[in-house]
Write a protein that binds this DNA or RNA. Structure first.
Lengths: 135, 135
DNA sequence: ATTATATTTGATCAATTGATCAGATATAAT
DNA sequence: ATTATATCTGATCAATTGATCAAATATAAT
């Protein structure tokens, strides 16, 4: 147990410590905690990364991505494939597009969606390896 | 527009088609839809994969995983690092453990958590590459 | 045995989420 | 211009989620 005064640690129920508030945070290995703080990604970047996984972390959206991995598809074909309304698919495609996971190509009235870059397929392949062994 | 009778497609508001219900699903490229159906992962597997990403897709959990990527840490140190209650951290560790993303090692009363396998770090590295270029 | 320490567990609740619906755009055809 | 087609958008609502709290284990120390 280590006593901390006026540093940058945030205490669960009490917000961030400022001024002379004396607080007790249980830290068993201080160096380890400080190292984690030092090496942590900037908040903005880790938030973005988390959001990327979150977007992949929905069955409908993941199925979309995996289907597109075999070639581009239009909204209505995806809807037929998934058994969902075209509106639902469009909503999900927008979220995937916002995170640069898929990308549209317009041909007349039809929008064909594709995987945006090679990282997406790579993430999925490694994820599959993970769940297939030991998971 | 293609007319389908009594096949295995599911129609948005009407459940899965059975018997003689005549339905109209808009399919522009039937081969593409059928290919997607053929090559889709078994439902159970894609659900598991989605869940894996979902679990990584929360800022708190992702920070935990990234911190552990630099070496094992105990629950209370993680709590101090994150500025969260130990209970909150424990709850999240459980979810990470359930998906085999982290793994505990007991030493007396203390539980040290580690990244479970190399795939986890790989997924994160590729995710980072993705958001850092073009994202 | 009793007490202290480290973590886990179950309940609660505000906040977020995903599919649907109705209506809005955007492009093409007549 | 009008109509049809393909997709998008905003609102709604049940269901899920994450942090907190209080209480329960589990291990260690006296």
């Amino acid at each position: 147990m280590i006593n901390l005064k006026s540093n940058s640690f945030t205490i669960p129920g009490k917000g961030t410590t400022t001024g002379e508030i004396e607080c007790q945070i249980r830290i068993v290995h201080l160096e380890r905690v400080l190292q984690a703080k030092r090496e942590a990604l900037p908040e903005e970047e880790s938030a973005r990364l988390a959001l990327t996984y979150k977007i992949l972390g929905d069955p409908t959206r993941l199925k979309i991505v995996m289907a597109l991995n075999n070639g581009e598809m239009c909204v209505c074909d995806l809807a037929a494939f998934l058994g969902l309304s075209e509106s639902a698919v469009s909503h999900q495609l927008r979220r995937l597009k916002d995170l640069a996971l898929v990308r549209p190509r317009r041909q007349g009235q039809t929008l064909f969606y594709t995987i945006n870059d090679s990282h997406v397929a790579a993430i999925i392949n490694i994820g599959l390896e993970h769940i297939r062994e030991g998971g």
